[in-house]
Amino acid sequence: MNRRTELLDVISRKLAPFVMVFGLYLVAYAHRSPGGGFQGGVVIASAVILLALGRDIYDVERLFPLRALHFVEVFAFLLFLAVALGGALFWAGIFSYPPAGGQEQLGLPPRLVLSTLNALIGVKVGSGVTLLALTLFEDDRRRP
């Protein structure tokens, strides 16, 4: 970004943490208010994109290395599958939830499984969309 202005720089750096917190809020409270993993993840990714627009993209890539984002995305998906298979192991079947009032297996509340899946989807979508954007924004001529 050669034509960067001070205004964009300051605004994006001040705004991005709040956007990120809002994304986390969307993920964390998806069970009782509008939101969810996909939406929250995209909002989190938009905070990173805002930083990349305001600052230099390679500064942002030092903060969120692409290799780490790849790892985080795949690992979140593996954990998602693990939670799904855990349902088959402990409860009725794949992607099943603990019975509501039951204390027979582990005694977990069903909302814990839902929130875990939501958080994993949020992390996965957030890192995935960030990866898409950062990869496409890269400019090979200015690679440090």
Binding site: R32, Y97, A100, L117
Partner: peptide, 16 residues
């Protein structure tokens, strides 16, 4: 709500 613990029906449907 009883089986997934989510008041938000959208979350309950897309995750359960």
């Amino acid at each position: 709500e009883q089986s997934t613990g989510a008041i938000n029906l959208v979350s309950a449907i897309y995750l359960a």
